[in-house]
Design a protein around this nucleic acid. Sequence first.
DNA 1: GCTTGACCTTGCCGCAACGTCAACGTCTTC
DNA 2: GAAGACGTTGACGTTGCGGCAAGGTCAAGC
Lengths: 251, 251
Amino acid sequence: MRIGELAVAVGVTTRAVRHYHQLGLLPEPERRANGYREYGLRHAVVLARIRRLTELGLGLAEVRDVLADEAGKDLVEVLTELDEDLARQEEAIRERRGRLRILLEAEGGLPVEGPVSPELAALFAGSAQLSDSPMAAKDREIMAFLETAMPDEAREQLVSSLGEALGNPEAVAQANETYALLDALAEAEPDDPRVAEAARALADCIPPGLFPEVGDLDHDDSVLRAFYADLAPAQAEAIRRTLRLLTEERR
Amino acid sequence: MRIGELAVAVGVTTRAVRHYHQLGLLPEPERRANGYREYGLRHAVVLARIRRLTELGLGLAEVRDVLADEAGKDLVEVLTELDEDLARQEEAIRERRGRLRILLEAEGGLPVEGPVSPELAALFAGSAQLSDSPMAAKDREIMAFLETAMPDEAREQLVSSLGEALGNPEAVAQANETYALLDALAEAEPDDPRVAEAARALADCIPPGLFPEVGDLDHDDSVLRAFYADLAPAQAEAIRRTLRLLTEERR
DNA sequence: GCTTGACCTTGCCGCAACGTCAACGTCTTC
DNA sequence: GAAGACGTTGACGTTGCGGCAAGGTCAAGC
C-alpha cells in the first residue's frame, strides 16, 4: 500500500500518518525505488490501534507508552487515569453550563454593561430599581470587580448581603439618594461641606454584614489608590471619610 | 497600579495581561517615565470582565467581539452558541467514558494485544475459547482492523454475527480446526492439495450473514494485496480460493 | 512525446492561551 | 553597593495535526 491507500483504509489523513512517523508511533516502512513509502498489513493494524486509542481520548504520548509497554498491563492504568481525567472535564463543563444557564435565564436586561458573575447577574436582574446615575454605574463596576477579586467566603457573604439589600425597597431608595449626593460632588472641592454629608449617608447605606473586613483595609493598597484616582477629588474624599467612619464604628 | 499589582488584584498572571494587550483585548495604559505600565481602575474592570468571560469558556476572539459590540445584545447569542458547543463536548465525553467503561470492565484478559473497540473487546473477553494459534492471532488482528475500516452499518452487522458465532461452541470448535488447517500451510507450496481443503473448511466457517458484501470485493484492493503479502504463499492462496468459493456460493 | 491530474516527497508556518526562559533595566532596602 | 523583587521586550514550547510551498513520479489520453 502507498500512504494514501493506507490512510483511507484506516480512516485518517496522510498528514496524520506522517505525523505518527515523526513521533515514532508508527514505524517507517520500506521505501520503493521512487521514495514512496510501501506499507504492509502490520502498519495498518498498528495505525488502526493508534486511531482507536486516540479516539478514546488518549494523547499521542500516552499512545506511545501503551504501544511500547507490550503487554496490556500498563494500559488499564492509563485508561483508568484517562477516565478520571474525563470525569473531571465533564464536571467542569457541567458547572460552566450551570453558570451559563443562570446568565441566560436572567438575560432580560442586565443593568451592567457586560456580564457579571451569574450570581450577581441574577441579583441585578431581579431588582432593576437602582438608578442609572454615573455613581451608580461606577458602583456596579466596583461590585463586579470586587466580586472577582475577593476570596470565595467573602464573596458569598457579599452576594448574600447584597441580595438582602436589593430586596428591601427602603434600602434601595436610600442607596439611590446617596448616589445623587455623591454625583453632586463631581465638580466640588474636597473641602466642600457636602462631602461630610455624603460620607455620612454612604456609611449609613452599608449594613454591618456587607463589609466586615473594612478594619483590615490597607489604605495604601494599589487598587484603592487607583480607585480614588478614578473619581473626582471631592468624591474620593467622601469615600475616604466613609471608610474612616466605618472603621471607627465597627470597632 | 503596576502590572503585578493589577494581576494579583484580578487573579491572573502578568503574562496573561500582556497577552491581552497583544491581542488588543485590554488597552495599553500610559507608561511611567521608566517604561512601566501604569494601570487605573478601568483596566482592572475590563480585565475582570475578560477573566469572567474566559472562565465561562469563551475564546479570546469571542471575548474581543463581546467587548467590542458594546451592548449585551451579541452576548446572548455568543453565550447560547457556547452552551450548545459545551453540550456537544459533554456528550462526546460521556460517550468516550461509556466506551472506556466497557473496556475496563472486560479487562479480565483481552486476547488481542492492545485494545480493540469496546464492542469487540467485550465479545472476545466473553468467549476466550478461541485457540491461540498464529492464524487465530492474525485473524483477530484482521477483525480488529476491519472493525475500524468498515462503515458503521456493516460494522454492527459484523459484530452481531460474530457474537452469535462465539456464543455457539460448535462454531468455535470448527473455527479452531480451520485455524489449524491454515497454520499447517505455513511452509507448504501454493499447489499443495491441502490448500483446497483449508479453503473449503474456511468457507464453511463463515455464515452467510457474516460477510454479505463478499461479492462486491475488489480483488485488486490495496489492503487485500497487503494482506496476502503478509501470509505464506499457500495460506494466501487458500484465502483467495475461499473468497472465490464464497462469491460463487452467494450468487 | 506531450500534457494533465492525481499521487508522493520534505519542510515549515499556524492555531489557543498562555508558560517559561533569556537578557536586561529599575527600584527598594540592608 | 549589592541583593532581591519588580519591570521591559522577545522568542520558543506546548497539542495534533491542517495547509501550503516547491517540487518528483506515475498512469492515462491526445
